Amino acid sequence: MPKSKRNKVIALTKVEKKTREDKEVIVDEIHNYLDEHKYCFVFSVEGMRNTFFKDLRADWKGSRIFFGRTKIMAKALGKSEEDEYKAGLGALSEYMSGDVGLLLTDEEPQVVKDYFESFVREDYARAGQVSTVTFTIPAGVVHTTGGKIPAEDDVPVVHSMEPTLRSLGMPTQLKAGKVELFAPYEVCKTGQTLDSRQTRLLKHFGVTSSFFKVHTVAYYDSEKEEVKPFISA
């Protein structure tokens, strides 16, 4: 009779040991890249999406990006003159908070700044995010873009979508085989926290209101042994 897999005891000491080893590996890896590259940049991410972040990593194959373990990254840099890995590097740790990462590279600061400023990707909002747009669908026949373009240039939504739209809160009806609204329907407004119903409607009508952006925060110059912040525009 095979042994039961239920009530299996896991030794927590072994789990903790593995975690410490993982942290040490990351710290050593950061130190190696600090030795290899001239600059260490701190960047912050807005509207995180794994798909877009993978594209970003691909663009920096000759360099190295670390993201997701802020405390470990800060430990690798050092937080004071006593424990900083390189002279002056500890000052970079004060920028290590929030959704931030490290870029180790030999590219000049202006090149890095220009790249991140140009790397902006539109996406559909997710539930819990704050809306950056006000979107209202006009009364009458409902079209595929929800009124974003003139009706004569648009296409009415298929009649089979009526139950779905109604289930998402839109007061629709079928009339002569077309989906109609009695009155204008406000899906969302700027500054409102979106729920799943609203985000589904925004996606259905092709309204992108979320952006993946990367901001340069500060950088360390190993030759000058100093940290410089980026000035926000």
Results as ranks from 00 to 15, higher is better:
residue 118 S to F: 05
residue 231 I to G: 00
residue 89 L to K: 02
residue 227 V to P: 00
residue 32 N to I: 03
residue 79 K to C: 10
residue 56 L to M: 06
residue 180 E to Y: 00
residue 55 D to G: 10
residue 192 Q to M: 11
residue 231 I to H: 00
residue 153 D to W: 14
residue 117 E to D: 12
residue 65 I to T: 00
residue 24 E to C: 05
residue 216 T to W: 05
residue 212 F to V: 06
residue 155 V to Q: 09
residue 218 A to H: 01
residue 14 K to M: 14
residue 161 M to A: 07
residue 139 A to N: 14
residue 217 V to D: 02
residue 52 F to D: 06
residue 73 M to S: 04
residue 220 Y to E: 07
residue 100 V to G: 08
residue 170 M to E: 09
residue 86 K to Y: 09
residue 169 G to R: 08
residue 107 E to S: 06
residue 26 I to Y: 08
residue 134 T to Y: 01
residue 102 L to H: 08
residue 214 V to T: 04
residue 36 E to D: 10
residue 164 T to R: 08
residue 139 A to G: 07
residue 143 H to K: 05
residue 65 I to V: 08
residue 83 D to F: 07
residue 172 T to K: 02
residue 88 G to P: 15
residue 90 G to L: 06
residue 219 Y to C: 00
residue 158 V to S: 12
residue 211 F to W: 03
residue 111 V to H: 12
residue 226 E to F: 04
residue 147 G to C: 04
residue 1 M to V: 12
residue 115 Y to W: 14
residue 175 K to R: 10
residue 71 K to A: 10
residue 134 T to H: 01
residue 86 K to E: 15
residue 10 I to N: 04
residue 153 D to K: 15
residue 11 A to K: 11
residue 62 G to I: 09
residue 30 I to P: 05
residue 59 D to G: 00
residue 215 H to K: 10
residue 129 Q to A: 09
residue 50 N to C: 04
residue 20 R to K: 15
residue 95 Y to A: 07
residue 90 G to M: 06
residue 104 L to A: 00
residue 227 V to M: 10
residue 207 V to N: 07
residue 205 F to K: 12
residue 8 K to H: 14
residue 190 T to V: 11
residue 49 R to K: 13
residue 202 L to N: 02
residue 168 L to W: 14
residue 178 K to L: 15
residue 25 V to C: 00
residue 13 T to C: 11
residue 209 S to P: 11
residue 112 V to S: 03
residue 120 V to M: 11
residue 181 L to I: 13
residue 67 F to N: 13
residue 27 V to R: 07
residue 10 I to W: 12
residue 210 S to C: 05
residue 4 S to M: 15
residue 141 V to C: 13
residue 85 Y to M: 14
residue 201 L to H: 06
residue 189 K to T: 07
residue 105 T to G: 02
residue 230 F to M: 07
residue 11 A to G: 04
residue 177 G to R: 05
residue 89 L to D: 01
residue 15 V to C: 09
residue 70 T to P: 01
residue 195 D to P: 15
residue 196 S to E: 13
residue 94 E to Y: 09
residue 15 V to H: 10
residue 82 E to Y: 06
residue 193 T to P: 09
residue 188 C to R: 01
residue 32 N to C: 09
residue 75 K to S: 04
